[in-house]
Structures are given as structure tokens and as C-alpha cells.
Write a protein that binds this DNA or RNA. Structure first.
Lengths: 295, 295
DNA sequence: CTAGACTATCAATAATTATGATATTTAAAA
DNA sequence: TTTTAAATATCATAATTATTGATAGTCTAG
């Protein structure tokens, strides 16, 4: 069976163009490398280096094997890195449930940094409606969740307020409500509202529908699609609808609220009593800081 | 540095669920495997197996490392396979120049079989007009060529007739020639012919243009495009234009030749005096048989 | 032509790995 | 419950492999 030590000698010697230099770098004696390469050549039945000149030069055959040798070494470093990751008690994988309206460039930037910091921890990213997010965390199917606050505090889940996102009422520019001004909430009631609730029909407590004839979606993007089709009006995050308001496709509804704009708190949620590994802890802190910095 | 022997023990033991079985398969004694796994665990600082039961079961950490270990082993087999390929004197890469009109499913089927037979020989496939094919082979830039015969036999290149391909004169259905019947070759002359010649303006000897106002392309597909645009008529392989003739977009021109249909010989070309490796020889024979079998 | 640096080779030694015997544990059969 | 077969851990020893240091020959730059 191949020896990775010898493969390493092959790669290093090829790069340095010298067995002696390779030996120095490996903290060995020159003859060790000479023997190592020679034995490798015998085992493979291939002459790897041309020794006619002072500095050994890879033969074409050696050149052909070099690429594969480098890949082999890289793979072995990878293996050791995973072992180190395990000894640091890093998690093998984290599942993160995010309300789809919160899946912003800010969040993906954090994930990019995470990938660089914990290169051997896999991320399973699930985007859902907020009620489903909390359900996944509660059931232990997600390690961390990012969602809009639920009024009902859940006993099995830890909440951590990290910021808020502005919601606006919007409809299509040709929708009847678009032309109306200074509406009260009750003025909206005759028109169909599109609202989010989870796949298991858990109604969101904050973004609860006020109208009798509502339609329900399992994601904010689906809501947006229905609004674009003039099926109804909806409360949606400003960041989600802004592009379409600017192009004139959608229009904000002029509602007079007590509090305006309607700012919905964003919570980071974890299951209670879970001991966090380094990756979990890092991700939690990063998300916390990012959302606080966002506004 | 990691020992591939130990990695192999890890993978085999995990698959078999037994150190003893692993030892038997490796032709070693049980204690060798026991030691090997134990040393690997010590080196990595990770407990790989749970030995509480009779048959060792991978720990979650071991499970996480197993995937990477298998990849590492696969890479090492790959490395050895390349070495074997070299000892069989297989070429590292072959460059094949093919007239683009001959790049048929027959040919790609041969390449698929080649890939399975010589998995460590790379193929560099270049599609050109026939005059460029012979030039590439002559200059040593291609190991093997497939092209339409040149009348002038080249001293530096070996030709091997392998079959023939039917050419037809075609034009767009709305082109003036489409409506005419029983044309002689001279009747075609007033109309623009689209013909193939190489990038270096070597005129093909067989498919030479007879008309004074010709346009030239460097590939048959380019010719086809110009014909579709009603820029002129052309001689093209029947197989290339057949689909368009059937849809009615193009139309065969009713020319009365001495010999009909015009059958153009296909040659396999190699540079003279080149000693063929196994891959080259195989590819040559396979192409020869395939074209002979094609009709 | 020479000095410095390189590689191959060899025999001795150090280190690693494999072995065989044994004790202990486990899971299923009697 | 006892028995039995097969599994693993441990340990001292044997075998193999890798490393070393010395040496001789070779190449290149100055």
C-alpha cells in the first residue's frame, strides 16, 4: 500500500527541484528522500525523476502522476482537518431555519464568513414561514432559527430579540385599494388579504389576518406572487416589496395606524437546554450582531 | 503523517463491522487491525469505534470521518491506476482532429467506449474542416484525424480509407434552384456556392467550388447556417441536412451527375513514422471498424 | 580547474509494524 | 443457567521498514 510520506516526498521534491531541499523541509536526511523516492519508483514501476542533471527533473510520467499525487495529499490534509475539527468539538452539521423574508444578503454574508471560519461544518439551510421555523427548532429538527416574533412565548424555546423589520401593506397598482387614501384598518376588511401561516396551519400571531376572506401561503414569496396577480393585499416586509413599488407594479396602501411603520421584531431562537458547540455559538453571535447592525 | 494502511483498516472495519473480519480480508492477524485502529485513534485524537458491544460500531465522529476516508482511499487507488496505465505505456493524452461533419453519434459512442477502456487517457477533441485536420496531423498537433479524402496524397501522413459519406447539393426551399429540375453542374454556376476550406485558406480538393462567386466557411455547420439564410447553395453531407430537408426548410437540388449520389471517401489519418501506443492503436482500430460497419 | 552542492549507495541502527499467545468479553445456543 | 464460539485488548517478541551517517561520484557556477 502507498505511503503518504513518499507521496509527500514526490510532491515536495518536484516543487523544489531537489531531494536535499525536500529533506531539509521535512526535517530528514537527504538519503531518506533519495531512498523514499527510489522505493516509490520501484513500487509504482515508473521512473519519476530524471537524475541526469544536478537537479532532479520530473519525467513526463512523473508529471502525469504529480497532479494525482497533489490531489491525494490535499485529500489527506482534509481528512486530518476534519479530525481536528472534531477534537475542537465542532458540530458536523447545523440546521438553520429562516423565515424566507429574512433570507437577505446580510444573512448570506454571515454564512459565507461561517464557511470560511468552520470549513468542515455543513450547513442545512431551510427557509420557511415563521410558525414553521419555531416548530422545527422546538422539534429539534433545526439547531437555530431566525423568524418574526411570536406573541406566545414558547416554554421549550429560547428567544433572543435581535432587531426589527418594517412591514407595509401593499397591493397591485391596479387593485381597488391602491387608489384610496387615509384608510383605516377596517377599510381593508372588504378586500381579500393574503397572509402567511405555516404548513401545519399554525397561524402567525403577529401578522394575523384581520379580514374574513383571507388566503394563506406558506411563504412570503408566495404571498408576493399572489399580490402581484391582484388576488389580494398583504402585509409584507418593506425590503421584499421595495423593488416592485419603485417600478410601479405594486403600491403601498395608505393606512393610518397607531404605530407606523409597522415594525415587526425579529428573534433568534434556539431550543432550551441545548449545549452549543463552537459553530453554533459563533453563528448565534454573528446573527445577533448582524441584525443589530443592520439598522 | 497518516498511514493509508490504517485508513484502509478504518474503512474495511466500518463496512464489515468487525476487526477480525477486516484482518482476514487484509491477510493479517486480528491484533494488527486492533493496533492499527487504536493507533489511528490516538494520532487523530478521535474515538472512531464504540467497542462496548461485540461488534465495533462507528461513533458519530467516526462516521463523519468515514466519508473523507473513503475519498482518500479512492484517490490513492486512482493514483495507482495511473501508475499502472503508465507501465502499460498508455498515452497520457491523445489529440483527435475530426471534420465537423463527421462528428456523429457513431464517433461519440466510440469515444464513450474509449473512456471506459482507457480511463486515464485524456482526449483532446478538435473539430475542424478537413484541410485543417490534415494540417494538424502533419504538424504533430493531433495524433489522429478523421476527414474527407484529399486527392493530393501527403508524404508525411498515412491515410487509411474507412468508408464514405454521401453528399448532396442543397439550398433553401425558397432559393431559385429549389424549383428547377434536372440541372447540370453548369446550371449551378450562376448561383453562389458556399464551400468549406480551412482556416489557412487551403481549398479542399474534393469539395472544390465550381462557381466563380463562392463564399467560404471554416466548418460544415457554418456552411449549413449560410444555406439556411438563402445566401447560396452547398454540397453537404446527407446526414447533416437530412433533418432540415424533412422539415421542408432545405431542399435537395436535382442535379444530374455522372455518379450519384456523390459519395465522398472518409480517411483516417496519422502522422507517418509515429509509433502508436495502446490507446492510439485501439482508437484507430475502433474508428476503422465503426465507419466500415456504418454502411 | 576548483569549491560547493547535489545524488546514490551502503551498512548499521532506530523505529515501526506484525505476530502469536493469552485474557476477557459478548451473544447466541444448549 | 451454562456452554460455546467468536470477538477484542493486551503484551512481549519477531520481522520488517525507515532512518541515519559516511562515502564516493557528479554536476555547475565562478
Amino acid at each position: 500500500m502507498l505511503s503518504l510520506e513518499q507521496i509527500n516526498m514526490l510532491v515536495l521534491s518536484a516543487e523544489l527541484g531537489s531531494f536535499s531541499a525536500c529533506a531539509r523541509k521535512l526535517g530528514k536526511v537527504q538519503s531518506a528522500v533519495s531512498h523514499g523516492i527510489n522505493n516509490l519508483e520501484i513500487d509504482l514501476g515508473v521512473e519519476l525523476f530524471d537524475r541526469t542533471s544536478r537537479s532532479p527533473k520530473l519525467t513526463p510520467e512523473g508529471e502525469r502522476l504529480l497532479r494525482s499525487a497533489k490531489a491525494l495529499l490535499a485529500q489527506s490534509y482534509e481528512f486530518e482537518k476534519i479530525a481536528e475539527s472534531i477534537t475542537r468539538h465542532e458540530e458536523g452539521a447545523l440546521t438553520m431555519a429562516v423565515d424566507d423574508a429574512l433570507l437577505t444578503p446580510y444573512l448570506s454574508a454571515i454564512l459565507a464568513l461561517f464557511a470560511r471560519t468552520f470549513s468542515h461544518v455543513e450547513i442545512d439551510l431551510v427557509s420557511l414561514a415563521s410558525p414553521d421555523v419555531i416548530a422545527m427548532v422546538k422539534d429539534g429538527n433545526a439547531d437555530i432559527g431566525v423568524m418574526f416574533s411570536e406573541v406566545e412565548a414558547n416554554k421549550q424555546v429560547d428567544f433572543c430579540y435581535v432587531g426589527s423589520v418594517d412591514f407595509v401593506a401593499v397591493c397591485h397598482a391596479d387593485f381597488p385599494l391602491a387608489a384610496m387614501r387615509r384608510l383605516s384598518e377596517s377599510d381593508l376588511m372588504p378586500y381579500r388579504q393574503i397572509a402567511v401561516r405555516g404548513q401545519q396551519k399554525r397561524e402567525s400571531q403577529v401578522l394575523i389576518s384581520m379580514t374574513p376572506n383571507a388566503w394563506w401561503c406558506s411563504s412570503n414569496y408566495s404571498v408576493l406572487e399572489l399580490v402581484k396577480q391582484q388576488i389580494g393585499w398583504a402585509y409584507l416586509p418593506l425590503s421584499l416589496v421595495q423593488p416592485f413599488v419603485q417600478t410601479g407594479l405594486l403600491q403601498k396602501i395608505d393606512v393610518t395606524f397607531d404605530h407606523k411603520p409597522w415594525s415587526v421584531p425579529v428573534d433568534l431562537v434556539c431550543k432550551k437546554g441545548t449545549l452549543r458547540g463552537p459553530a453554533h455559538q459563533w453563528l448565534f453571535d454573528a446573527l445577533k450582531n448582524a441584525f443589530s447592525a443592520e439598522r
